[in-house]
Design a protein around this nucleic acid. Sequence first.
DNA 1: GTGAGTAGTTACCCAAAGGTAAGCGCTTAC
DNA 2: GTAAGCGCTTACCTTTGGGTAACTACTCAC
Lengths: 125, 125
Amino acid sequence: MKVIKNEPLPNKVECANSLKNVLDALYVLNGKWKLALILSLVQSSKRFNEIQHELSGISAKVLAKELKDLELNDFISRKVYLTTPVSIIYEATGYSRTLKNVLSELSAWGEMHRVKVKQSMRKQF
Amino acid sequence: MKVIKNEPLPNKVECANSLKNVLDALYVLNGKWKLALILSLVQSSKRFNEIQHELSGISAKVLAKELKDLELNDFISRKVYLTTPVSIIYEATGYSRTLKNVLSELSAWGEMHRVKVKQSMRKQF
DNA sequence: GTGAGTAGTTACCCAAAGGTAAGCGCTTAC
DNA sequence: GTAAGCGCTTACCTTTGGGTAACTACTCAC
């Protein structure tokens, strides 16, 4: 009987694909703030200071960088309204909305996870 | 008419909650490799070198660190089988499997995203 | 003209993430 | 006995992430 090497089962190909997909997704969505930022703007368009207030903890520098990055990747758009003084509004694009399912699953999981962490904290004492 | 400040609409509370959930989820799932690593082990238990081979690009150092981290957070378990020589198998726990929906959504999105990126590359030339 | 707000930018700095390369202690295969 | 595989660890280094604080340029309100 011969051992077959380097020829994955068809089943394994699917697994490898989903692994690749996840890696590709993480490549653009990496970082501490990106997904939260997208979620915040999908919920409603906001100005710079509003975002900074909502994601308490993010610094102006990092927020500016992340916003540029997300704009480059077509997740958000920066709109300048010629009021006096000008209003600068960041909006989520349609492409951001393709993340809707990802975000709602992640939110649901995050909530469940918080409960679990709290419980295991209680057990310790 | 008075402007009400710092008293969000009930609707906004929900939004803030899902934002908080996502932030909490990202806190444990951060990093370049964590979700991919979990997915790989949910698909099948593996040994150290098998994982390193599957996630090509990850270094031994980082893999060892991530595995320890995931074990601490109850996502995987490290089993030592007393064969000669001993076999060390990493397995996903039940808790990893609670990420099933997150992972499948992320995989679906990653696949879609790759197609979109390829298309926009083509348009450039 | 002074202070406050808006939307950032810049310089400086620290810490964490993550890669490379070498090595260790073990065992099996040749 | 020598090489190769396994499961790491260690030392070293670079990159990045991200924080602070000061500053700009503009406008409005007092």
